[in-house]
Amino acid sequence: MNHPKVGIIMGSKSDLHVMQDAADVLKELGVDYEITVVSAHRTPDRMFTYAREAAGRGLKVIIAGAGGAAHLPGMVASLTHLPVIGVPVKSSNSIDGWDSILSILQMPNGIPVATVALNAAKNAGILAAQIISTADEQIVKNLIAFKDDLKKKVEESAKEMEGRD
């Protein structure tokens, strides 16, 4: 991975079990990424630096996962012009994930955060790849192949269930 286009950040290393799905799908789709821990509450200076320097380092999209109060995606979005995709994470101190979902979803006008479903880091990775594909024909081809594969898997499952080979 020479020139990451997507930054994957999370509030705690304990979120990696969810956020790894974004990294895995980006790798599958041929999108270079970086991944690290940036806590809005415990390392605010690191968060400010990361968000403010992301575009200058060549990032095109940031995926930010957070649980509980989940301020990371919104705070990062307030500090950069890059698109930010928020992944609400159901953490050990969560209220069934609703606190994370609402903290990321309910952003004020002017500070949008694209929000995926609870623990849906894979969808965040796919969305990031789709955003990058607007300027990268190879990623377009990779996404088309990825979605064709999804279609084939469903058709194979249907044949299997219906007793056809």
Rank of each mutant, 00 (worst) to 15 (best):
N119P: 06
K5F: 02
S133P: 13
H41A: 02
G68Q: 05
R42D: 05
D21I: 02
T134L: 15
E137W: 13
P44S: 11
E137V: 10
Y50D: 05
A51D: 00
A55G: 08
G163A: 07
M47C: 03
I126G: 14
R42S: 05
I9P: 06
H81D: 15
V31T: 01
D15S: 05
S92N: 12
A70G: 05
A158Y: 15
L143M: 02
G7D: 13
I104Y: 13
Y50G: 01
M19P: 07
N123K: 04
A114D: 11
T36C: 10
V84C: 04
A77W: 01
A40C: 01
V87Q: 03
G68D: 07
V37N: 10
V76Y: 04
G74I: 06
P83D: 10
L143Q: 03
I132M: 09
M107V: 02
V31Q: 06
E162K: 15
V38W: 07
N2K: 05
D136N: 09
M47N: 00
D99S: 08
M19E: 00
I111Y: 02
A77C: 04
F146S: 14
I144C: 09
D136R: 00
E28D: 12
D99Q: 07
S91N: 14
N123W: 02
E156N: 08
D45C: 00
I8S: 10
V61T: 05
G65F: 08
G30L: 00
A64D: 09
P4S: 02
V76G: 01
I85E: 07
E155L: 14
Q20Y: 09
D165Y: 05
E155I: 11
P108E: 02
E156Q: 08
D24A: 11
D21R: 06
H41Y: 03
D149L: 15
I95V: 15
A135S: 11
K141C: 03
A55R: 04
A51F: 00
V154R: 13
V116G: 13
K147C: 12
W98P: 14
S39H: 09
L59Y: 01
W98N: 12
S39D: 06
G86W: 01
L59N: 00
G58A: 11
L72H: 01
K60M: 06
A114E: 08
R52E: 11
N93E: 14
W98C: 08
V140N: 13
S91V: 11
G68P: 02
A158I: 15
P88C: 09
